[in-house]
Amino acid sequence: MASFPNVYTHRKVADTASKACEICFKPSTSVLVTPENKDFFYVCPAHLKEKGFCSPIIDEAAVAAKKKKEMDAEVERVRKEFEEKQKKKKDKEKEKGKDKDKDKKDDDKKEKKPEDKKPDEVTTPALDEEPRVFALQKTFYQQRVDKKRNAEIAKRNRERLQNPNLFPQVPKGFP
């Protein structure tokens, strides 16, 4: 039997498909699955945070790409804000002769609106920070391998017992 790698992906299932956690036997909708679906088991999300059970596998390339994308978006946003401020400054110089009080009040209102949007942008990326790929600790991984091996041995034994050639034949002649 070829054993499976110690790389498990965290997946969610529907509430109706929840089964008992392998550790605490409480109903859980979280499943850890190997890449080729050779092994899977239900586990509570709280156990995924325990250092004694598993450790997250962090893909450095994906993290770097995500940071670069966020930086590009931030640069673009700052560039647009700067262009808008420059445009407002030019408009303000043109309308300087007109009602100065109205322009100042309008500018104050416009400047407050973008600041209100900034906290919302900060909270949305925080939701996706949970790792999805894990490596089990040595003892738990060995338990999974042993359980899989024992199930395969039991299946082979059942097949052998169903084979009529396994048992010896009854003697047909007289002694």
Rank of each mutant, 00 (worst) to 15 (best):
Y8D: 01
Q137K: 15
E152Y: 03
C24G: 05
C24H: 04
D116M: 15
G97K: 11
S30Y: 00
E60D: 14
T139K: 13
P56Y: 06
G52D: 06
H10K: 14
T9H: 09
N165H: 01
K87N: 01
A17V: 03
E70M: 12
A17D: 04
K92F: 15
R79V: 10
I23D: 06
V13E: 10
V122L: 08
A14F: 03
E74W: 12
E84Q: 06
E84D: 09
A61P: 05
K110Y: 07
E70K: 06
R11L: 12
Q143M: 12
E50R: 11
A14Q: 07
Q142T: 06
K92G: 12
M71H: 13
V122F: 05
K98E: 14
N6Q: 05
K104E: 14
Y42I: 09
R156C: 09
F41V: 09
V13H: 05
K69F: 07
Q142W: 06
A126T: 02
F53Y: 11
Q143I: 08
K118V: 11
P5I: 02
E60W: 08
R77T: 14
C21Y: 00
T34G: 02
P171Y: 01
E22L: 13
F167P: 00
L136V: 07
A65E: 10
P164L: 00
I57K: 05
V13R: 11
